[in-house]
Amino acid sequence: MTSDIIRGHTETIILAHLLKKDSYGYEINKTVKEKTNNLYEFKEATLYCAFKRLEENGLITSYWGNQTTGARRRYYKITEDGKKTYERNLEDWKQTKKIIDKLI
């Protein structure tokens, strides 16, 4: 399985997850793994690079969560710009999929 194509959509996948609820790195990755039946999961470095870029571009923000058990975690939250970007990326992907399906 070529992961390059998936990696190109890392940010959109993160945004999609954050649309449902605020979350942290490992939780997002765990969901990715579960949803794909263990077929795919991100490398930590890929995930954090994406977080950094998303935050710099104002698509997500982060805050320290209050966890009663264990250590405090950094949670990520999607912004309004992030939601717009997600919608746009989703449309792009639908178009791309249509085209690729016709061509190969």
Binding site: Y24, Y26, N29, Y48, R73, R74
Partner: peptide, 14 residues
């Protein structure tokens, strides 16, 4: 340090 702690926490949970 934030990044390091985040990484440690995520990897420990994993």
């Amino acid at each position: 340090l934030d990044l390091k702690n985040e990484l440690i926490m995520d990897l420990s949970e994993k």
